[in-house]
Design a binder for these strands. Structure first.
Length: 809
RNA sequence: GCCGCGGUGGCGGAACUGGUAGACGCGCUGGACUUAAAAUCCAGUUGUAGAGAUACAGUGCGGGUUCGAUUCCCGCCCGCGGCACCA
């Protein structure tokens, strides 16, 4: 009887006691670094979806172990962040205590599933010994001008009472709590990720083993577009309006210019504006709109003309009208556009509404546009002075040259990605290691004084004033300036959730190093991460941030490689049995502990891999889990009966075993675990059928051992147990990954299909040596084939070696 | 609107570079064992017609290329994910 509870407990204990999963350091062996995205230890514990990715990495890690690699397979905790803090607030416990408790739960759950983590290397982002280096990296960025103070309006979550980065928004709402986010001007620390935008974009091409989908998401997020800035002088004034455009070629079609309502230029234009009251009304109306209302898709465009103000097109000296309108964003480009209604959809809509003139200057063949007088694609220029007759692409280059020569414009590249708002007005995060001195300005905390630890506070509730709760701790916040010794104040904002996860994969390489974040030789040996598995939701957050920090660390010589993660694989979600996302709210959460208890961790591991393609979402089915459980029972019974039954080694099954070794090996590499599990099942079914029919086992014990070796990464507990039962001795993971034999895989007989006009009419089993003519002769002799051919002329014969023969009549 | 992914039995899904559609699993139906049930084992399970051999239809829809299309091309529909007035 297969007693999974006993077996799994026994082997988990043995693995622990023998330190089986301690990372190998034998420098003669090749290395393999397999990494999971470390979890945020929430109060709810793991549900059955979390381990899916961990099972896959565990399979790969165990296979590499059997293949003789030094395998690094660590786990840790991304434990700073709002949920722990909110939980702590509600339950009046310190976030540290809540976090510790949650980590203990998570760890226990992970151990129940039999993962091969090296717990010696466990890390925790909230450990001061860890975050001293998070702070250290921040300081290096500050020193190089990559961290700066900004007073620009930022996203503010009124419920979490903190500023947020662009990446923290979903549909204009706070990603954490769902509240509508407001714009609020306040002092913030911001990281200059835009300095790295080009490299973050271009280097994606150096990552062939990243899924195209994720790279595409990052490309869009970075959103590089190249074009030009053009200066429009204001008539009878020293002021000018600079616009950004990707379509300089349409500049002769510009019939007006539009400023974003927030554009600061408006204030200096005020004296010239004849209808200031109307303008003020409009500004007020815009202000009253939420961001969502403003960006609503089908909203009709609105705006107000600045009467009395004219902008001058530098190319033809034409005076055009100036508008303000909220379809122009102040946060992108220059906060001003030249409007070319004949060649831009938005300008076209606006011009229709306000009856503004339209001038076509690009003629495109086969224009796809179905709106009158709107041509958005490239073409050939006309009515464009010296540039008439040029194709758009060429015109753009020449016109940018012209702008440079006449000093009224320049080439310009814009990005959608914004600098990373990096400070939070909350308690449970890494303190930002800076000090404000009235005399010396911003002064870094000396590196030997790191970490700046979080102080104990009475209340970690957010203040809502834009200041962190840390500001209220006078004896922590008030310090003397490290520079001049005078009275000074600590920076009291903390770092965001995503800070600690930007470099954690480096800390695993050298987790106890007190001197530096990672020793050079260890970094050189283990980097980069060979395989990184996690959810696609991190595509434009963690994965961009981490790449940014990594490139910075490369620039300052801390790491050797420009990209941290060689291969990235995303894991599809596991949904509830009702097809909805697993959540307490729907009551459809399945707990892995309970499933492991009932069916066994091995059956659970196998089932999660069997559910479907690894990267696709799939709905949970406890019935499905009973299927992989039955499969394991079959394996158990087969091996057990080997003690009682004679062995009659069967060539066909031995061949199937070797085919399975090949298939499973390949499927693990390509993340097609579902078909690997299916291959195991086919083999087990064949063996069981044989045993039932012949009262004998078709495979000798050493061949059963091969089966166990390839099964071991999937079902480690059972494989160990049966390995021991067969008397092999020692852990199965100290053995090696089997090599399949080509000669055993080759089939002696091949099944040919016989088609007439492409329709299947018969099957032929022939020797793999047989040639085309022989097969044709055999096929024609077959009654099932000949009856379709009598009285017909065979026009053509198609032969595919090893597969089919097709007669065309 | 743009970008990406997907649509195959009652369900989850197989099918390598165009070559036996529905592997494997779940569920269901019938049978064996049992006083009975569960478990287990055996058989069946895309639809239509037929007792049956078999025939025809069939991979979201409509066309096309091909001896042959789930696979390639053109035009649509639907679902999921991302971005979204980005000039």
């Amino acid at each position: 009887m297969y007693n999974h509870q006993e077996i799994e407990k026994k082997w988990q204990q043995r693995w622990r006691e023998s330190n089986l999963y301690q990372t190998g350091e034998d420098k003669r062996k090749p290395k393999y670094y397999v990494l999971d995205m470390f979890p945020y230890p929430s109060g709810e514990g793991l549900h059955v979806g979390h381990p899916k990715g961990y099972i896959a990495t565990d399979i790969v890690a165990r296979k590499r172990l059997l293949q003789g690699y030094n395998v690094l397979h660590p786990m840790g905790w991304d434990a700073f962040g709002l949920p722990a803090e909110n939980y702590a607030l509600k339950n009046k416990v310190h976030p540290r205590q809540a976090t510790q408790k949650n980590i203990a739960t998570f760890k226990k759950q992970l151990e129940l599933l039999g993962f091969s983590y090296d717990w010696e290397r466990e890390i925790n982002t909230t450990d001061p010994e860890y975050y001293r280096f998070t702070q250290w990296i921040f300081l290096q960025m500050w020193r190089r001008g990559l961290a700066y103070e900004s007073y620009a309006p930022i996203n503010w979550c009124p419920s979490c009472q903190t500023g947020l980065a662009n990446e923290d928004l979903e549909d204009g709402h706070c990603e954490r709590c769902g509240s509508l986010v407001e714009q609020k001007p306040m002092r913030q620390w911001v990281l200059k990720i835009t300095d790295y935008a080009d490299r973050l974009l271009d280097d994606l091409d150096k990552l062939p083993d990243w899924e195209e989908a994720i790279k595409e998401m990052q490309r869009h997020w970075i959103g590089r577009s190249s074009g030009a800035e053009i200066d429009f002088k204001i008539a009878d004034s020293e002021e000018k309006i600079t616009v950004f455009t990707t379509r300089v070629d349409t500049v002769f079609g510009c019939t007006y210019v539009v400023l974003a309502p927030e554009n600061p230029l408006l204030a200096s234009l005020k004296p010239k504006i004849n209808n200031w009251f109307a303008v003020e009304d409009y500004l007020q109306a815009v202000k009253d709109k939420t961001d969502l209302q403003r960006t609503e898709l089908n909203k009709e465009k609105t705006g107000v003309c600045l009467e009395g103000v004219f902008a001058v097109n530098p190319f033809n000296q034409k005076k055009v009208l100036v508008y303000i309108a909220d379809y122009v964003l102040n946060s992108y480009g220059t906060g001003a556009v030249m409007a070319v209604p004949a060649h831009d959809e938005r300008d076209w809509e606006f011009a229709q509404k306000y009856d503004l003139p339209l001038k076509q200057v690009v003629i495109a063949e086969n224009s796809a546009s179905n709106q009158d007088n709107l041509v958005t694609e490239d073409g050939v220029l006309r009515d464009s002075g010296d540039f008439s007759g040029l194709p758009s692409a060429e015109a753009r280059l020449k016109m940018i040259d012209w702008l440079k020569q006449h000093d009224c414009g320049r080439e310009k590249i814009n990005y959608k990605i914004k600098d990373w708002v990096y400070s939070r007005q909350r308690y449970w995060g890494e303190p930002i290691p800076l000090i404000h001195c009235d005399k010396c300005g911003v002064v870094p905390v000396p590196e030997e004084q790191l970490p700046v630890t979080l102080p104990e506070v009475e209340s970690y509730a957010p203040t809502g004033t834009g200041e962190s709760p840390l500001a209220a701790i006078a004896d922590w916040a008030n310090v003397s300036c490290p520079h001049c010794g005078g009275p000074a104040k600590r920076e009291t904002n903390t770092m965001p959730q995503w800070g600690g996860s930007c470099w954690y994969y480096l800390r695993y390489l050298d987790p106890h190093n007190q001197q530096e974040l990672v020793a050079k030789d260890l970094e050189k040996y283990w980097s980069p991460v060979d395989l990184y598995v996690g959810g696609a939701e991190h595509a434009t957050r963690h994965l961009i941030y981490a790449r940014f920090w990594h490139k910075f660390l490369y620039d300052i010589g801390v790491v050797n490689y420009e990209e941290p993660f060689t291969k990235l694989q995303h894991v599809g979600l596991i949904m509830g049995e009702d097809g909805r996302k697993m959540s307490k709210r729907w009551g459809n959460v399945i707990n892995p502990d309970e499933m492991a208890e009932r069916f066994g961790a091995d059956a659970l591991r196998l089932y999660e891999m069997f559910m479907g393609p690894f990267d696709q979402a799939a709905a949970w089915s406890t019935n499905g889990l009973s299927g992989t459980r039955k499969f394991l029972e079959k394996i158990y019974n087969l091996v057990e009966s080997s003690a009682k039954l004679p062995v009659k080694e069967e060539k066909k099954i031995l061949s199937l075993l070797h085919k399975t070794v090949k298939k499973v090996g390949e499927d693990i590499e390509t993340f097609r675990f579902n078909t690997a599990v299916s291959a195991f099942m086919i083999l087990a079914n064949e063996m069981t059928d044989y045993r039932n029919a012949h009262e004998a086992l078709p495979l000798a014990p050493e061949n059963l051992g091969i089966l166990l070796q390839i099964l071991a990464p999937f079902a480690p507990h059972l494989s160990e147990e049966l390995w021991e039962k067969l008397g092999f001795g020692g852990s199965i993971f100290k053995s090696s990954w089997p090599v399949y034999q080509e000669d055993l895989i080759k089939d002696e007989a091949v099944t040919y299909i016989v088609q007439v006009n492409g329709k299947l009419r018969a099957q032929l089993s022939v020797s793999s040596e047989a040639g085309e003519d022989e097969i044709a002769r055999l096929a024609l002799a077959d009654e099932a084939v000949s009856k379709w051919l009598t009285g017909q002329e065979i026009k053509k014969r198609i032969f595919v070696a090893g597969r089919l023969i097709n007669f065309v009549i």
